[in-house]
């Protein structure tokens, strides 16, 4: 019992770090495709967190919509326009 508690605690700490890091990376990246991949990583970590908090319905919805479909839509939208973000000087 104790071991699983410590295990889940450690996983949650890891997921929190991943969430914050991928969010910062998604904002800071100049290359928009890399930023979109960082957002997919964010959604995947969020769905893992939902699963650990015992909400598998929300986890499936988050993984399907957030990591799958939104990434595809963003990639198509980026390829419709341009790869690089313009630097505002």
């Amino acid at each position: 019992m104790m071991n699983t508690d410590v295990f889940f605690y450690l996983i949650q700490v890891f997921i929190g770090i991943t969430l914050i890091a991928s969010a910062i990376v998604a904002i800071r990246f100049r290359n928009l495709i890399a930023a979109v991949i960082a957002m997919a990583v964010f959604s995947l970590a969020l769905s893992l967190e939902f699963f650990i908090l015992q909400a598998p319905d929300v986890a499936i919805a988050e993984a399907g919509v957030g990591a799958g479909l939104t990434t595809a839509m963003y990639l198509l939208a980026i390829r419709n326009t341009t790869d690089e973000e313009e630097v505002a000087e």
Partner: peptide
């Protein structure tokens, strides 16, 4: 099992989106 119409439809649509891309 966990899931339902919306979740399954989203997973199915992401498979089709992979096919499209």
């Amino acid at each position: 099992t966990p899931g339902g119409g919306f979740q399954g439809g989203a997973v199915f649509a992401s498979g089709l989106a992979l096919l499209i891309i």
